[in-house]
């Protein structure tokens, strides 16, 4: 019996998720014993045509990381969907948009102008911008089109399972593959991580008081953080209570607050709204002005509450941006 074939593909991501596979270290050996890798552009020389050549559902599983923001990524998402039995959104970007998802606060034009013209490190007097098509030596060259809107994988194609995290830990990855191979799978659409908030595994948990009342919020660089004590108890916004467990609380263990990359639990529809609700209810101030000055401690609410999840949030994108923008010429 041939080994099940799997594909690994990246869309808009930093490459960290690819790294996570490698980070399985010797664990990867076991994986490779169990499966054949049929497509992994970062590591192995397969072509799109090789995937096309596969029969539909010819792949056992495809792990797609990164958000979807170009026409090519959409195309690849669809292709892999067609060819695989299990499509897995791998990592925060594919699951909920991730850091690239914050581009949903800007129009494509704003982004391009900044990146190709206004950024202080850019020198581009001719104001050259990427083109979807151009002629070079009489040959027509094509580039994918950058979309206006950043999407999660499941906003483009149907997704079977989610492995969250930025990036998912090797342990989660191994467990996910193991679960797939063993066939012991939860219901379709499930997140392959514990359905409980991070505090459950946080080493600082016992130091959290039961009478927390925020007098002020501080950003991590503004304070000398006590490495033992609950970060919220120190006035540092830690998304742990509103974020899934499964990462072994790597950030709080490393003296940094959780920023929410694992996404919400299954019972929460909008992670940012929930964190906001919990956090603000416990502010100690009692009148408008005083409340306002406490809230000033969170200067960027969207970036704080939706760092990894804007495209998957209820509002998805800055609402007053133009819906359509002329395609890049």
């Amino acid at each position: 019996m041939p080994k099940p074939r799997i594909a690994i593909y990246w869309c808009a991501s930093c490459g960290g998720c690819e790294e996570a596979f490698v980070d399985m270290a010797e664990g990867i050996v076991g994986v490779l014993e169990a499966v054949d890798i049929a497509f992994w552009p970062v590591a192995l020389d397969f072509k799109k045509s090789d995937v096309r050549a596969l029969p539909d559902k010819g792949l056992f599983a495809a792990f797609v990381n990164g958000a979807v923001r170009t026409s090519e990524q959409e195309e690849m998402a669809r292709l892999l969907r067609r060819k695989s039995r299990h499509l897995i959104a791998y990592g925060a970007c594919a699951c909920s948009g991730g850091i690239p998802g914050l581009a949903n606060l800007f129009t494509r034009e704003q982004l391009l102008r900044f990146v190709y013209e206004d950024a202080p490190t850019v020198s581009n007097a001719a104001k050259t911008r990427p083109q979807t098509a151009c002629m070079d030596d009489g040959r027509e060259l094509e580039l994918p089109e950058l979309r206006n809107v950043v999407r999660t994988l499941d906003q483009v194609v149907e997704v079977d399972y989610y492995v969250p995290g930025c990036p998912p830990t090797p342990k989660m990855t191994q467990e996910a593959i193991g679960a797939l191979l063993s066939g012991k799978l939860p219901a379709r659409g499930a997140v392959l991580a514990p359905d409980m908030a991070l505090c459950s595994e946080c080493p600082r948990r016992s130091s959290k008081p039961t009478d927390l009342a925020f007098k002020a919020f501080r950003r991590p660089h503004e304070a000398l953080i006590d490495p033992q004590k609950c970060l919220l108890a120190q006035g540092v916004v830690c998304m742990g209570p509103a974020t899934r467990a499964g990462c072994d609380a790597a950030c709080p263990a490393g003296n940094m607050p959780c920023t929410g990359c694992m996404g919400p639990t299954s019972r929460v529809r909008d992670q940012g709204a929930k964190m906001l609700s919990s956090l603000c209810a416990s502010i100690s101030a009692r009148d408008d002005a005083a409340i306002g000055s406490v809230l000033d401690g969170i200067p960027d609410p969207v970036g704080t509450f939706y760092r990894y999840g804007l495209p998957k949030s209820l509002i998805r994108r800055k609402a007053d941006l133009p819906a359509q923008e002329a395609a890049v010429p």
Binding site: L105, G272, L276, S277, L279, C280, A281, I283, A285, D288, I291, G292, L295, I298, D300, P301, V302, F305, I315, K318, A319, D320, L321
Partner: peptide
């Protein structure tokens, strides 16, 4: 009231009047 105040700031950030 506290949630409301933060929500207004959030809405501003999300481009909702």
């Amino acid at each position: 009231l506290r949630r409301f105040q933060m929500l207004r700031r959030l809405l501003r950030g999300l481009g909702i009047d």
